[in-house]
Design a protein around this nucleic acid. Structure first.
Length: 417
RNA sequence: GGAAGGGUGGCCGAGUGGCUUAAGGCGCUCGCUUGGAAAGCGUGUGUACCGAAAGGUACCGUGGGUUCAAAUCCCACCCCUUCCGCCA
């Protein structure tokens, strides 16, 4: 959610930012007019209430002295009715404003390049050497089947399409990756591990921006008001919903492994082979709560923390900066990390690291006190995959396969297997 | 699932519809005191919104209702605790 005061005083900045990312500007105009009405009404209503409060004191005084209060009483009856009907109107405006505000995406940071879609993203850097194969590398799913460590058929039998069963060494490798990533972030990068529920209330989804706009992306329980999380970003960011954090506690850095659940509505026919796009997958997520002035430095560090996983695994990757048109709803700036898939001869996203500035914090009410006696301010939140485990598994299969159709285990993972 | 009891400022905890501007305590702030501290005394101590300001308004789990007036009365819902039942 954007700052209403900022929209009021800088409508042109907001509209430019939104157009740059290809979003509608109508909601902003809509907000400005409803907000105007709301303020007029609120001022009037507050005055009427002030009168009512005065009268209340007088009535109490008269009753105390056993004097007649019927005149002022009947006056107040009318006033009270007026207040009630104006309050209904006010509530109506407030609901409208809330709905509008929740539908407006974040505006891109000044450093974000313009562009329409992923083709306009900028390569920031590249790391690692692509291995020269003296044979044709197999796609990860074929190798996985051959090694009997991935079972797509039985997964389809028990759960339908876009699921996979990890078997034997496959299950162990997935588990090893999770442990390796968590250990790295906890011991070397200074994050605190948390293990959270994978089901959350609608308020939590609203806090991070998945609701109300992207409900079709989520799995929802039929009989309970609960959603399966599409990313650990949701429960972890919401850990501090409606809190005022002590300044000394910042930056707060969490690392969490969770399963993630996505309906993938609208991506029929996309990445149907392999484990790239599943309804359920494992992810180690990094989440930070930081002071506003430091959030862009923290974004660079966060991205570096995620990159370190790939460096240690010796997997070639590149870092892309998303253009305005490719930014997610809540993000102000995002780096995607893409890992090399030799069988496809292309890089594929394995991590997305974003600064949300105060967008999520405002929705979720996450604040801190900049100084003693100062008013609370919204923190900046950031998160990034560190990394998507399934995609990392696939990248290892592809990059570490041998001519004989076997798999070499990356050095850093051996102690976990 | 059944029964009972509860949700009030950072915490504890009062609160017969109107001198409630939410008592009192703890904690914390600043000051007095002191060689320094403790104790003691005093002072301050929530959040949000509107407003240039003065000031005003709202908030006692949530949402409705009654009333001139609700933390207080009524209704519904949510959550927590304890006990019973069932179950890993």
């Amino acid at each position: 959610m954007l700052d209403p005061k900022f929209i009021r005083s800088n409508p042109d900045v907001v509209m430019t930012g939104l157009s740059n990312r290809g979003a509608e500007i109508a909601p902003v105009e809509n907000f400005l007019s409803v907000d105007e009405e709301w303020r007029k009404l609120t001022t009037r209503l507050d005055q009427l209430k002030a009168r009512r409060n005065d009268a209340s004191v007088k009535i109490a005084g008269l009753k105390q002295k056993k004097e007649d209060a019927s005149v002022i009483l009947s006056e107040m009856k009318g006033l009270s009715d007026e207040i009630k009907s104006l309050e209904d109107e006010q509530k109506n405006f407030e609901h409208q404003i809330e709905e509008i505000m929740l539908s407006i995406p974040n505006i891109p940071h000044v450093s974000v390049p313009n562009g329409k879609n992923c083709r306009d993203n900028l390569q920031v850097r590249m790391w690692g050497e692509k291995r020269k194969f003296d044979f044709t590398p197999l796609p990860h799913d074929e190798l996985g089947k051959k090694l009997d460590i991935l079972d797509f058929d039985r997964a389809a039998k028990i759960s339908g399409s876009r699921f996979v069963v990890y078997k034997g060494l496959g299950a162990a490798l997935e588990r090893a990756l999770i442990s390796f990533m968590l250990d790295l972030h906890i011991k070397e990068n200074g994050y605190t591990e948390v293990m959270t529920p994978a089901m959350v209330l609608p308020e939590s989804m609203r806090g991070t921006g998945q609701l109300p706009k992207f409900e079709e992306e989520l799995f929802r329980c039929r009989d309970d008001e609960l959603y399966l999380i599409p990313t650990a970003e949701v429960p972890v960011t919401n850990l501090h919903r409606e809190e005022i954090l002590p300044k000394e506690s910042l930056p707060i850095k969490y690392a969490a492994w969770t399963p993630c659940f996505r309906r993938e509505a609208g991506s029929y026919g996309k990445d149907v082979k392999g484990i790239i796009r599943q309804h359920q997958f494992n992810k180690v997520e990094l989440v930070k709560f930081v002071e506003p002035e430091k959030s862009y430095d923290e974004l660079e560090k966060l991205t570096a923390d995620a990159e370190l996983v790939l460096k240690k695994l010796n997997l070639p990757y590149r870092v892309m900066q998303l253009c305005a048109g490719d930014l997610g709803f809540s993000a102000a700036k995002t780096y995607d990390i893409e890992v090399w898939f030799p069988s496809e001869n292309q890089y594929r996203e394995i991590s997305s690291c974003s600064n949300f500035e105060s967008f999520q914090a405002r929705r979720a009410g996450i604040r801190y006190r900049p100084a003693k006696d100062a008013k609370p301010e919204f923190v900046h939140t950031l998160n990034g995959s560190g990394l998507a485990v399934g995609r990392c598994f696939a990248a290892i299969l592809e990059n570490y396969q041998t001519k004989e159709g076997k798999l070499e285990i990356p050095e850093v993972l051996r102690r976990y297997l």
